[in-house]
Amino acid sequence: MRSVLAYSGETTPRPVQPATQLCQFPQPLVVRRLFQSSILSLQDVLLLAWHTVRSLPGGRGAGARLIAQLDAVGVRSVPIVMLTGLFTGMVLALQASVQLKQFGATLFVGRFVAASMLRELGPVLSGIMVAGRVGAGIAAELSSMKVTEQLDALETMGAEPIRVLVLPRVIAAAIAVPVLALIADIAGLVGASLVSVMYLGVPISAFFQAAIDQVVIDGFVFGMIPSDLVQGILKPLAFGLILSLLACHHGLRATGGTAGVGVATTRAVVSASITILIADYFLTQLLLVLL
């Protein structure tokens, strides 16, 4: 009988490459091992995703677990995401004004900020901020459960850790991150409008009219949903899935006592942040073709 946590069939931790060997770069063997390790990790994350889908709808208590996670992942991330969005919008307005002033086009600050926030900065910044706050929390919680045998205790009592722990976190992140991205967009536009009014003398109505014009120019999906908004929801949805799955993966894979908790947490945040940035590029390419 195989533990559900050994989702790739590995029951023992992989050997760590000695630092002295890694320093002798470039070496074909080192590169090959790093590549193999990356492929194995990707396989593990995909398998975890598959097992998570298979554990739907989540069984008894799934609703309560999801609500608790929506609170932890979503509601408690609102302040940090709002603050990030607000100041990013303010900085964007300031930077845009420097360029647009030269052409007497400060009225277009709203368009510039709307396009930047809705399509890129809102989703990416929310994803990265949530990866830092929530991803670290998920990885730390699951890894400490792993090293203190709480995951074994769950399995012993007939509860699958993926169903009880991973599924609610992944669904909560998939729901919460798009909403948080919209909140970041709104906060960014509010911040940019304040800068526009106070420093550039742009009337607030003109600022928001320019922002709306930008959304209209970028077109609609099915004739009614702004394509900027579609991008601004689909990307953070993917980012939510990425950060939660990676955080759960690193948490469940933790080894080595309390030191392993720190390692898992760091890995979760770093891998989620980098993967979000890489995924953003490919998603942008895909969505530009599709929308």
């Binding site: 045998e149 709480q150 074994d152 205790a153 012993t156």
Partner: peptide
């Protein structure tokens, strides 16, 4: 069947492994 069987087994862990 494994889950059914495990439901008939009680386990006392070394560090208690209580859910924090």
């Amino acid at each position: 069947e494994q889950r059914t069987l495990r439901a008939q087994i009680g386990m006392v862990f070394q560090g208690a492994a209580l859910f924090d």
